[in-house]
Design a protein around this nucleic acid. Structure first.
Lengths: 337, 337
DNA sequence: CCTAGCACTCTCCGGTCGCGAGTGCTAACT
DNA sequence: AGTTAGCACTCGCGACCGGAGAGTGCTAGG
């Protein structure tokens, strides 16, 4: 069981780590917060917390770093929220009232302000329409090195896209590929399409991927606003070129839109925190996501989220995401009248 | 004087460097292109080219790297253009005809296609309105740590923006700052405003910067589309964290919009190449910019540009920028009818 | 004017070493 | 039983070499 003292200690470890981004040592804990015990005692407790999977050491002779499980408990029970001060509220609200009363402008502004306020990536997405499933695919030869992928969806819509090929394929070969893909992909949604594509190779894979993307396109992707890339990248977790590149690679409208949960599933007024491995996507393993929804009385219409390293100022970020979501919702309500 | 042979050699050095991103040695040149001379002779010629400021060595025992002057000559006389093939033209044009016939969608698509085609950053900007000059500034105390900057422009427009302060300033102090700034900035355009801000410190600097940005805002910034950040960042010139961060920091709509030349100054149909230090801004010192304008018969309305490291495939990029600009212009013409 | 040969320079890479930070464990203390 | 002082041990990190390799400039001879 997790004793009171150990829980408090965990809270301190997370606080400290969020602050310094460096493994937290028993000495640092004793020094910064005068708990009435020695470092040896703290070490014992830390060892217990490690056994229970809340924290870990990067290597034998290092301090402790929170694990996802530690963050989870922290977010649910230990952290102190830093509410949005009145000044801050006024400053933010003012900018909205000053802007043109257009939803697009509001959302873009909201993304910018939120990103600036929490120094992380802010994403605001407004999906439109329903995602459909595939009926079948056809391929049309365009030039030697490109073909047209035509996706026919179950609801009857027809979408097309050009794919460039690495090897020449004539119309017969294309037809064969199309037959195979149609068989495997019939009834598939975008995610299933991508899964099938994973198993294929070369041009056939490219075509399958294009098909999956066409299915995705059926959602008629609304606007997506992404801000704060720069602020996020300045954080120490991205101090190597590879991590930075990976972040830039993935932080794109297209990919994010399909990573964020549907606004319906969140519901207005609630804020969900998704930590590290709780994210489905592999690349998000050491990211956390704070998601909220906005909308009017007819229900939620969009998602507003902050993405950042798992080492994120949850207590600070969460209220701000919630506040901005609520603010937009109330702007929408007023606009409707 | 630059002999024929030396010019050719320079062309080869630039070609090779663009290709490999590594300093070019006399041996590499002799091996890859069977010039009828020995490496020693090549070394002599390279030494001359270095004296004349076209190329340089990163350190004594390294090969040669082109300097801006070398690139300039290359672009103007030596490079071989790689025209946009018919297939490529068709593939690109097709996507435009498939898109909704809205200028916004066209521009966004153009940025994406262009960036993908040249694997560098593509920027498309459509400025609107004229930039104005400042009449005077006023400051209004909002909260302890924020103030409202009110800029009155020469054409009578009034723009405002909130600035957060690092130190508390009361209304008297703010009034003093406003008086000082108004005196220094009267009649200034945005660039001059920024220059003055550079000389100031702390909150006064922040306020001056905000003022400069307000002046900029008077242009009523149109849409800016930026694509290809990721592709650009994968290039070897950004293989250090600092360079990458610097690029991300600067490649923002706001900053780029004010870096690109006015479409009027370029004129439809022409393509301008700006290499390294020829760029005004300090951060662009090792970037090159290929700029073209698009518009209809009433004149150019927007700028289309590709940004990349000075080591850029000029011969490949230039025709593609030109092509896309022309394509959009012609779409505009047709739409007008 | 060209070229073979050579001495020289400088970077890059791998290995070694010592320092410092931090831990876990043990034994004594309350 | 819980706490603590003391200590041996581990590990990462930065500094410091030293040799290999790449490339140059120069010289002397064709």
């Amino acid at each position: 069981m997790l004793t009171k003292r150990r829980a408090e200690l965990l809270g301190l470890v997370v606080d400290e780590y969020i602050d310094t981004a460096a493994p937290v040592s028993s000495r640092a804990l004793a020094a910064r917060h005068g708990l009435g015990v020695s470092t040896a005692t703290i070490r014992n407790e830390l060892a217990r917390l490690e056994d229970e999977g809340y924290i870990a050491q990067p290597h034998t002779s290092a301090g402790r770093v929170p694990l996802d499980r530690g963050y989870r408990l922290y977010v649910e029970e230990l952290m102190a929220e830093e509410p949005v001060g009145l000044n801050e509220q006024r400053t933010i609200a003012h900018q909205f009232h000053q802007a043109e009363p257009r939803l697009d402008d509001w959302l873009s502004l909201a993304a910018t302000l939120l990103a600036g306020s929490v120094t992380n990536v802010a994403v605001i997405a407004r999906p439109q329409g329903q995602a459909a499933r595939l009926r079948h695919v056809q391929l049309v030869e365009l030039t030697v090195d490109s073909a047209l992928v035509v996706a026919v969806l179950e609801d009857g819509r027809v979408l097309q896209r050009i794919v460039s090929l690495t090897q020449p394929l004539d119309q017969d070969a294309l037809a064969a590929v199309a037959r195979r893909l149609s068989a495997r992909l019939a009834g598939a949604d975008a995610a299933e399409g991508r899964a099938v594509a994973e198993e294929l190779l070369g041009d056939e894979q490219r075509i399958a991927l294009a098909t999956a993307e066409l299915i995705d396109d059926s959602r008629q992707v609304g606007e997506t606003y992404i801000e704060g890339l720069r602020a996020a990248l300045e954080q120490p977790e991205f101090s190597s070129v590879e991590r930075m590149l990976e972040a830039v690679r993935h932080l794109q409208a297209y990919e994010l839109l399909h990573t964020l949960p549907d606004p319906q599933q969140i519901g207005r007024g609630t804020t969900r925190v998704v930590i590290g491995h709780e994210n489905g996507s592999a690349w998000l393993q050491d990211w956390s996501m704070i998601v909220s929804a906005f909308g009017d009385r007819d229900g939620p219409v969009g998602t507003i989220a902050v993405l950042g390293p798992t080492r994120m100022r949850y207590g600070y970020t969460i209220p701000r995401v919630r506040y901005v979501a609520a603010l937009i919702s109330s702007l929408l309500e007023h606009a409707h009248r």
